[in-house]
């Protein structure tokens, strides 16, 4: 346990170190610009000459100006402390002052995205399980559904999402539902694949046993196939929930939406607010970790209750 923690902390520290180091060349042009305006000597002396140089070369030529790469208003690459400060200011701090649901709060935007994610995940999982049950029980469905399911996933979601949004908008649907549909579109596939495998997991002998009891197909499904598929289902759900989150975020991009994590990233990029983009990005990552972690927790408890060997 301690060793695990130690190695995790080492990796995190290494990433943060690299990140800080990367800030220097990334923000060096702006740093020299500001230094020159403040009257400091800069090499090379003109902005156009500097633009010819890469960030690393510029950093090497001006070692005394590195400090200026941090704490800029609109850095190309914000430093970890800037992102964390912004993240805290827009979540914890606002929540403490009772403004968790204000339009500037990432808690609010996360909730908008989360609700679409969960709704889409529920749709997608339901659809996936129904399709898998159909595929396992009907040869016709096995032959016809699977190729379409695979084909559906080869279309880039970035190309498809705007079409879905526009079409649904024309019939008066907007906001939550279209995003949830994109989420469902991404999350049903891992569930179908996992559940088909899971429902087919019982061996010949276990199926023969059901036959000797003269069990109906429904009983075999309910008492044998479904319980046997649980480990597969949970593995799929973990992939499915992260796909759902991506779907919800992508669904917010083409609408010019003003609410949701995707919208935060988009408006951030319109106005060059890199800190805002990065903090929305981190909020999404934290959300994903929480979602996957929650499913992992349910998985462990369910499988334990089912007596699966730990």
């Amino acid at each position: 346990m301690m060793r695990n923690l130690l190695s995790i902390l080492t990796v995190v520290a290494a990433i943060i170190g690299l990140w800080y180091a990367a800030c220097i060349p990334m923000n060096m042009h702006e740093a020299t610009q500001q230094a020159q305006r403040a009257g400091t000597e800069v090499t090379p002396a003109t902005a156009s000459e500097r633009l010819q140089l890469g960030g690393i070369a510029l950093a090497v030529k001006n070692p005394t100006l590195w400090r200026g790469s941090f704490g800029q208003d609109r850095p190309r690459l914000p430093s970890p402390d800037q992102v964390m400060t912004e993240l805290w200011n827009t979540t914890g701090a606002m929540a403490l002052s009772g403004r968790a649901m204000s339009k500037r709060s990432l808690v609010f935007h996360s909730w908008i995205t989360l609700s679409a994610t969960l709704l889409g995940f529920a749709f997608g999982t339901g659809l996936g399980i129904i399709l898998a049950v159909g595929i396992v029980h009907s040869r016709a469905m096995d032959m016809s559904v699977m190729p379409w399911a695979i084909a559906s996933q080869t279309i880039p979601i970035l190309a498809l999402a705007p079409m879905i949004i526009v079409v649904l908008n024309s019939i008066g649907l907007q906001g939550l539902i279209p995003k949830a549909i994109i989420s469902a579109y991404l999350s049903f596939f891992p569930v179908v694949v996992g559940m088909v495998k899971g429902l087919r997991a019982p061996g010949m002998m276990q199926l023969d046993l059901m036959r000797t009891y003269n069990a109906t197909q429904g009983q075999t499904l309910w008492k044998l196939r479904l319980p046997a598929s649980m480990p597969y289902l949970f593995a799929s759900l973990k992939i499915g929930i992260s796909a759902s989150l991506i779907g919800a975020i992508v669904g917010e991009l083409p609408t010019g939406a003003i609410r949701g994590l995707g919208a935060r990233m988009l408006t951030g990029s319109y106005y060059g607010q890199t800190i805002q983009i990065w903090s929305a990005l981190f909020a999404a990552a934290i959300l994903a970790a929480i979602l996957v972690g929650t499913i992992g927790l349910i998985q462990r408890r369910t499988l334990k209750r089912m007596g699966m060997q730990p």
Binding site: M205, Y213, A228, M306
Partner: peptide, 18 residues
Amino acid sequence: RRARAYGYVFQAAGLYPW
């Protein structure tokens, strides 16, 4: 079989682990 006339014991116990 439909009348459930027999019980069958397979070579492996084949108990459901859950």
